[in-house]
Structures are given as structure tokens and as C-alpha cells.
Design a protein around this nucleic acid. Structure first.
Length: 427
RNA sequence: GGAGAGGUCGCAUAGUGGUCUAGUGCGCCGCACUCGAAAUGCGGUGUGGGGCAACUCACCGAGGGUUCGAAUCCCUCCCUCUCCGCCA
């Protein structure tokens, strides 16, 4: 396991690190880390010296035995035992300091990049561009829950019966539209784009969740399956962790993966707000894009990632905006993040359908994802990025509400028609 | 789920308590030989930590234990393979 932020940076430029974290209005135990590291270094050096001494004496015992010098061997044994007996105590000290240091480091959020705007709340996010036009209606546009119920394509009541709130049953053309969206998006990214399609497991172990930063801090958001297994909250977890503990060849970079998967989130604390219909679900599906790249390219790759996600919305003729999040709106693990929000005329709001983030080396350190520039060179941590391309329930909402007609039918956007198999969903 | 076999430095293998701080082959890098290449020979070739450095420590699936000393012995767990059972 490696430091989550570079130890050298923390020790040498603690103020810079603190400032980067403070921009997110988060705090980190930087001074404690420095102190713990200092202590740990002393003890680890001491332990190394003791081990060296023991190894040396033990080696002479072997030699003495071979020469038949039994008495001398016995004397040496006594010496060695004395040293060996003293080791566990120091070992224990080292172990405690090491786990303390690791705990402190794991609790440390990533720093915000210098290009991230200062701010306090959502209000301070910067809209970098807006694309497409808000649809104009010569009637009052309905919300998706009304549209979908009337069309019989979503069944909320029976979803509650079989599972509870926060789940939906898609049926008929609704199920088909949803399935069409996955296929459409995956094709867009893999056939027309340069991503490799990946279909990951929905259950991952704790090591994977530590790797991408969901654990140890955010366990309350996750569904636990057993001691060591959780349902994935996003395909980001399994897909990023594909490369955990690997040293990649430089020619493999950038790695670009596109993964369809179900996602499972407890959404603890989010109940009640903006949850009507299928805006916020415990189970939803999305296509996730993950990139592993060279550190010097990661911010260019981030821009491209945003563009790749935007292509979904653009090609479907939807109105959306791209926002650069200010510090406090960013998540624990990322350095810079753009949100894509699609306009939903029925609910009258922009809905977040993608967060495209650069994690720099934060996830790579946790998950130990490295690359080598050339043979014989030291491995370096890669930069890791991800973003949805795009999340379905909200995309589904946007399509229903944007393409609704006065009679309650839904016109399917042109590029989606071959996938859905109709140009209109009606009663 | 049951029985058996096994997890060793990129790959393949050796190693069953003390020249193993892991041998050998292949691969890879360098050098030599060559007009050039092949072949051959010689040398090198893991990761992480501490130290200005020389150097040193840890790591043989993971974690414990026995011992002066563990890849090697013991315990627990994980994983792989073969066979059986079950089953999309």
C-alpha cells in the first residue's frame, strides 16, 4: 500500500498540500502525517538494523555447525536469541506506527487542481458551455412519472411491492428503450469511439473499494454482501481495479474502457430531495468510461473524456450544460471534475448524468497502478480518470420529457430508432 | 458443496530448516566475435522501504506460529487445476 498523496510532497510542501485540500473545504491531518512518518522512519531504521544483526549472527551459527564447533555455535545461539527476543517489541511498534500512518493517509482527500474555481457551494460551479436548445412546447410538458405511467412503461407501485422505494420496474417499450440506450451508448464509445468494452462483475472485494477510494470512508453508501464483498456503486470500481497492482507498458496508454453495468447505492441521507420518479434510485444502470494515462496528459484526456460523454447527449439532440465544479462540490478522490447536466423539461431542472473526473495519481497510489516509460526505468504512478457516458435513468427521463408530444406519445430520436425498433412510443 | 494436487524473481522450472541475500532454461538489455546477421561466449536483468552514500531491510499467494535461523515445518484464509456433485 502506498501513500495516497505523495509523501515527499507532504513532507516537503505541506502548505501546498493543505491549500489544495482546503480549496475543497476539507481538512486533512497533514501535520500528524508528517509527525507519524518521522516516528515511523526512526523505528523502521532501528528494526532494519536489528534484523541485520540477527541475520549476521544466525549466518555464523550455520557456519560453525558445519565446522563442528558446537560450543561456539551454542554461544552464538544465545547471543542471537537475545537479539531475536528484542525484535518483536520493535516490530510491534513499527506495525502500530505503520497502520496509524496508513490510516491517516487513507483519510486524506485528494487536492483540488489549480484550475478548480474557488467557491462555497453549487452556486460557484462554473458553467463552461451549454449545448442544444431547450425544447419549446405549445403545451405544458409533463414530468416523466406521469408520461411513463400513462404509457405503461414504468411500474412504480409493483416495484415498491417487490423491493421498496428507490427501485423501478421498466416494462414494454420502457424496458426496450432502456436497453436500446445501453446498446447505443456502448456502440458510440466502442465502434465509433476508441474505448474497449468491458463487462465487469457487480460484486467486488474490499481491496478494490479501497483502491478507488469508496472505502474506508464511505461504507455507509454501499450494499454489503458479506465480510469481504460489496455490490458496486459504479463500474468505475471494478474497471479501474482491473489494473490494480500492475505495471503497464507505456505503449498501452492511454487505456480507455467503456463498461455497462448496474450500480447499487444506498443513497443514505439523500431521501426525499429530488427523488420523484426515477431521478435517484438504489439500483440504476450506466455506461462508465475509465481512462488510465500518462501524468502529463491527464488534463487533456479529461477534456476529451468530457467530449466523449457529451457526444451521447449531443447526438440525441438533448439540451445540456457542462459545469466545472468548484472545490467544495468535488468528491473526496478527484482533482478536477466536470458535471454534465441534461435538461429535463418536465421536472424543469437540469439533471446530472455524468461526472467526469481526473483523479491524477490518487487512485493509482491506492490501487498501485503504475507504468514504465522504458525498460530499466522506475515504475511511475499513472493518472486515472473516469466519467459516465452516460447514466440511464436520467437520460431516460430527458428523452421522455424532451420528446413528449401533446398526445403523450414519445418520439424516438433518429439515431436511437434502429435500437428501439420504433420511431414513436404511444399508448 | 466434496475429494485430491498445487500457488517460487516476465514465462517455465529447481529448491523439504543454515554457501537460497533463491539455482537453471527461455525472454529481454549490454558487450565480445562478425562485413552484417544467426549461432556462440561473457556480464546484466524484480518490487517496495530506510540511508547523502557505501550499504541495508522486507517480500517465494495472504496472515499468524515454531526456531538462533523458514521458500522449506505447523495453523488459518484466499486462489488455481483435476475429478465428483449441483446448476443457469
Amino acid at each position: 500500500m502506498h501513500p495516497m498523496l505523495d509523501r515527499q510532497s507532504i513532507v516537503q510542501q505541506p502548505d501546498l498540500v493543505k491549500a489544495g485540500i482546503a480549496k475543497k473545504r476539507l481538512s486533512a491531518p497533514i501535520d500528524e502525517i508528517i509527525a507519524a512518518y518521522e516516528q515511523w522512519r526512526v523505528v523502521t531504521t532501528q528494526l532494519g538494523e536489528m534484523n541485520a544483526k540477527r541475520n549476521a549472527v544466525s549466518k555464523t551459527i550455520g557456519a560453525l555447525m558445519a565446522q563442528g564447533k558446537k560450543d561456539e555455535a551454542e554461544t552464538a545461539k544465545a547471543d542471537a536469541k537475545e537479539i531475536s527476543d528484542a525484535i518483536p517489541e520493535v516490530e510491534e511498534k513499527e506495525r502500530i506506527l505503520d497502520s496509524k500512518l496508513r490510516e491517516l493517509e487513507l483519510s486524506c482527500p485528494n487536492m483540488a487542481h489549480e484550475s478548480v474555481p474557488e467557491g462555497a457551494s453549487e452556486e460557484d460551479n462554473v458553467v463552461v458551455r451549454t449545448r442544444g436548445e431547450k425544447q419549446s412546447f405549445d403545451f405544458e410538458p409533463k414530468a416523466h412519472w406521469d408520461l411513463a405511467t400513462a404509457l405503461g412503461i414504468l411500474d412504480f407501485e409493483r416495484a415498491i411491492k417487490i423491493s421498496g422505494s428507490g427501485y423501478a420496474v421498466y416494462q414494454g417499450w420502457g424496458a426496450r428503450l432502456q436497453r436500446a440506450l445501453f446498446n447505443y451508448m456502448i456502440d458510440l464509445h466502442t465502434i465509433h469511439g476508441e474505448y474497449l468494452e468491458v463487462y465487469p462483475p457487480y460484486v467486488v472485494n474490499t481491496a478494490s473499494l479501497l483502491g478507488t477510494g469508496q472505502l474506508p470512508k464511505f461504507e455507509e453508501d454501499l450494499y454489503r454482501v458479506d465480510d469481504d464483498h460489496f455490490l458496486i456503486p459504479t463500474a468505475e470500481v471494478p474497471v479501474t481495479n482491473l489494473y490494480r497492482d500492475e505495471i503497464l507498458d507505456v505503449w498501452q496508454l492511454p487505456i480507455k474502457n467503456a463498461a455497462f453495468s448496474g450500480c447499487f447505492r444506498k443513497e443514505a441521507g439523500a431521501a426525499g430531495k429530488d427523488t420523484r420518479g426515477i431521478q435517484r434510485m438504489h439500483q440504476f444502470d450506466k455506461v462508465e468510461l475509465v481512462k488510465i494515462c500518462l501524468p502529463e496528459n491527464s488534463y487533456d484526456e479529461l477534456e476529451l473524456l468530457v467530449t466523449d460523454a457529451e457526444r451521447v447527449l449531443q447526438s440525441l439532440g438533448l439540451h445540456y450544460r457542462v459545469s466545472l465544479l468548484c472545490g467544495p462540490e468535488m468528491s473526496f478522490s478527484n482533482s478536477k471534475c466536470f458535471d454534465l447536466e441534461v435538461w429535463a423539461p418536465g421536472v424543469g431542472r437540469y439533471l446530472e448524468v455524468s461526472s467526469c473526473s481526473n483523479f491524477e495519481a490518487f487512485q493509482a497510489r491506492r490501487a498501485n497502478i503504475r507504468f514504465r516509460r522504458a525498460q530499466g526505468e522506475k515504475p511511475e504512478f499513472a493518472h486515472v480518470l473516469n466519467g459516465s457516458g452516460v447514466a440511464t435513468p436520467r437520460l431516460f427521463i430527458a428523452i421522455l420529457e424532451s420528446y413528449q408530444q401533446a398526445d403523450g406519445s414519445i418520439v424516438i430520436p433518429e439515431p436511437l430508432r434502429p435500437y428501439v425498433g420504433t420511431d414513436r412510443i404511444e399508448q
